[in-house]
Amino acid sequence: MNEPGEGTQAPDFTLPGDNGSEIALASHRGSPVIVYFYPKDNTSGCTKQAEAFNAHYGEFLDAGVTIIGISPDPVASHDKFKAKYDLAFPLASDETTDVATAYGVWKEKSMYGRKYMGVERSTFLIARDGTIAKAWRKVKVPGHAEAVLKAVQEL
């Protein structure tokens, strides 16, 4: 499976979202979108990442950008995670991992010598025309939300 890169069309998706919503990438065409993939609700790195995006949410809004967080967790988990940390942006549930696979972020990982499949923390800035303007793969959380915001402001 080829990983979509910068300048290519972002794979379209429609996923169940928090609070019974439906999240469709196509409904955001015409404005930039941040789609970030994270491994699991309520884990330390994923919580820090969500809090960082949330801390800058007003600045992303000012830049006309929507943020969508995606993980394989079920909607019920997203609802609790979103409420616990008062997240302002939608979370989408990719339980089948079809969307993560389409974006090339469903990868073999290894922890303590055990191999397993999981989400490689990644963020995509999708331009108004639906192409990937910038892709960050193997994201390290500290400073990431700020780097994404800077890229958005330069768009």
Rank of each mutant, 00 (worst) to 15 (best):
N42E: 11
T131E: 04
L87Q: 15
G130H: 03
K109F: 01
R29S: 10
L125S: 11
H144W: 14
A83K: 10
K140Q: 12
R128L: 03
V119S: 06
K134R: 02
L15C: 10
G7Q: 01
T14M: 13
K48H: 11
N19D: 15
K80C: 00
K107R: 13
G5Y: 01
A24P: 05
Y38S: 02
Y57R: 08
D94F: 15
L149V: 01
G113S: 03
L91W: 05
K115S: 10
E95Q: 10
P74Q: 01
H56K: 11
V99Y: 03
A26L: 14
G45D: 07
E120Q: 14
V35W: 02
H28D: 11
L25K: 12
P16Y: 08
E95R: 10
S31A: 15
A76H: 00
K84F: 02
H144K: 11
Y103H: 04
G30I: 11
V75W: 05
A50P: 11
P4S: 00
V35G: 01
D98R: 05
S110I: 06
K109P: 00
G30L: 03
G143W: 08
V105Q: 01
L61K: 15
P90I: 10
G7D: 04
E3S: 07
R114G: 02
Y85L: 09
E154W: 09
Q49Y: 13
D41W: 02
R114C: 02
G7S: 03
T8I: 01
M111T: 00
I34V: 14
E146Y: 04
E154I: 09
T97P: 01
E146A: 10
E120N: 11
R137M: 07
D98L: 08
V35A: 12
G69M: 01
P72S: 04
V139Y: 09
K107F: 04
L155I: 14
I70C: 06
T66K: 13
D98V: 04
F13T: 14
K138W: 08
T14W: 09
F13N: 10
T101C: 05
G7N: 06
Y85M: 07
R29Y: 10
A133Q: 09
Y103E: 03
Q49I: 06
